[in-house]
Nucleic acid binder design. Structure first.
Length: 207
DNA sequence: CAGCAGATTGACT
DNA sequence: GTCAATCTGCTGC
């Protein structure tokens, strides 16, 4: 069936290019009971390490949380935001350089029942996997998966249906206003028209 | 050591 | 539109 992505796939020095290349790939998890859930990646964001103000590793911050990003490519960087949401990232390039790609949107293709249960939903609407915290919860990804290799049997990525360049859209990342001018970098990629792409929260009506 | 803000989401006014 | 939930890590006293 679908071939598991080799380690070499993640070793691209250009994390932005890799964020684009991840569109269309398969992302899967297996529960302790052996149920496989997953689907097709339709939205990603690149975080360019120490020189990117939006990255947790900006300026060389190396903490218990960011340590995994400094490790080898092809592993999972999972962390908690707001104390309750798990966000799943793919670590890229090489040891010592904290590049990562956040997965923000997934089109469900398998194990939908298990995902609905984990999300406490009755039907597969966009609420199931459109959004980084939503897809992590749907797949059962938690902090326990931090550092896991992405060619393992708990979490893995595979080849998928190629996304034609004309179907790829690009824009600034979401929720990184704190990053100053880096917030405007066009590091977000998504599949045009996919209902499984997240939407930025509507900004408060300033004056 | 207190305070605060954050790669978000969902419930409620 | 507004706000709470609640862990990690930075900033400042």
């Amino acid at each position: 069936m679908l071939q598991v992505l080799p380690r070499a796939f993640y070793e691209d020095p250009d994390v932005v290019q890799l964020a684009k290349a991840l569109l269309g790939k398969g992302l899967w998890t297996q529960s302790p009971e052996g149920i496989v859930s997953g689907g097709r990646i339709v939205e990603t964001e690149a975080y360019a390490g120490e020189t990117d103000r939006a990255s947790h590793a900006f300026g060389g911050r190396r903490t218990r949380r960011t340590e995994v990003m400094y490790g080898p490519a092809g592993t999972a960087y999972v962390y908690l935001v707001y104390g309750l949401h798990h966000l799943f990232n793919v670590v890229t390039y090489r040891e010592g350089v904290p590049h990562a790609v956040l997965i923000r949107g997934l089109e469900p293709l398998a194990g939908t029942e298990a995902m609905l249960t984990r999300r406490n939903l009755g039907a597969p609407t966009a609420q199931l996997t459109a959004g980084p915290a939503r897809l992590s919860q749907a797949l059962g990804i938690t902090i326990a998966d931090n550092g896991r290799p992405l060619d393992g049997d708990r979490v893995w990525l595979t080849e998928g249906q190629a996304v034609p360049p004309a179907c790829i859209e690009m824009g600034p990342r979401i929720g990184v206003a704190y990053a100053g001018e880096d917030a405007f970098r066009p590091y977000r990629f998504w599949v045009k028209g996919s209902p499984w792409v997240s939407r930025a929260k509507q900004a408060a009506p300033g004056l």
